[in-house]
Amino acid sequence: MRDLLTLPAVWVLAAVAAVFAALSPQFLTAGNLINVLIQSSAVGIVATGMTFVLLTAGIDLSVGSVMFLGAAVCGVLVGGGWPWWAGAVAMLAVGPACGLLHGLAITRLGLTPFVVTLSSLFVIRGLGLWVSRTRAMNLPDDFRQLATERVLGVPVPVWLFGVVLLASQWVVGRTRFGRHVLAVGHDAAAARKAGLDVGGVLVRVYLICGACAALGGLVALAQLSAVSPTFGRDREFDAIAAAVLGGASLFGGRGNVLPGVLVGAVTIQTVYNGLNLIDADPYSYPVITGGVVFLAVLADSLRNRLRGGRP
């Protein structure tokens, strides 16, 4: 919990929440807060995968497109008569497959993660448009239950988010692989000299990121219960922003899942939610969200500089 109070995003979140609580009486209702958490789940799950990649000093710009390709595949299969759960499984398979290709391109071909995932951002979205013929597709009601059903009083998306967070926290903090991720992120050359399988670590990290993107996509898809051609677009920026708000460094070796990603994702969703409640001009959303991210990152950087760490 000491981590929680030293995370600048926590203070930013508190400030944002205070502002919206003052502006809108609905903001601090239990229903709305649960709502924020449900809405945070999709981006939060994607951001968790992104955190793994950021820890290795990499980046994955393609997660929004992976969400879309998975959704398109799912929509086509379910539209063609497959049961809803089979469509969901197919969607979940698309993510790791994309991640594996990223990992191999980065380690075997020696390309930089930025370039690999920037090109696949276009390629994967293009594949999705091709598969779906750019049609919008409605999904059966069964799908929507995934978003609305409650287990022990907690909505399914929140369950999924919680499980992903806890599992990832455990992997980073408690497993051999997690320690290797931190070592590779700090200095890949040193990790190689220390006898680690740097390539293997990187491939797995992109695999995890792809898998999280697909799962996050599934949660978002269930909430909409329709595949539109713009599904998942720009979500990579929400995911990166949430991870960075959560304390992940783009230079690798530093970042955390809990409480980091949880706070980061909730902060971003709180901004969207609050702006919606006070009926703000929709065109102002990106400006305000961007400003909040900037402030949080600035605060983090100042804190590191004061402690004499690297910026």
């Binding site: 931190l182 070592a183 700090h186 990790a191 006898g195």
Partner: peptide, 16 residues
């Protein structure tokens, strides 16, 4: 030196 300052002493000793 080839140590990882972001890991613990024990983790550095047996990293591989």
């Amino acid at each position: 030196l080839n140590l990882f300052p972001n890991l613990s002493v024990g983790e550095n000793l047996f990293l591989d």
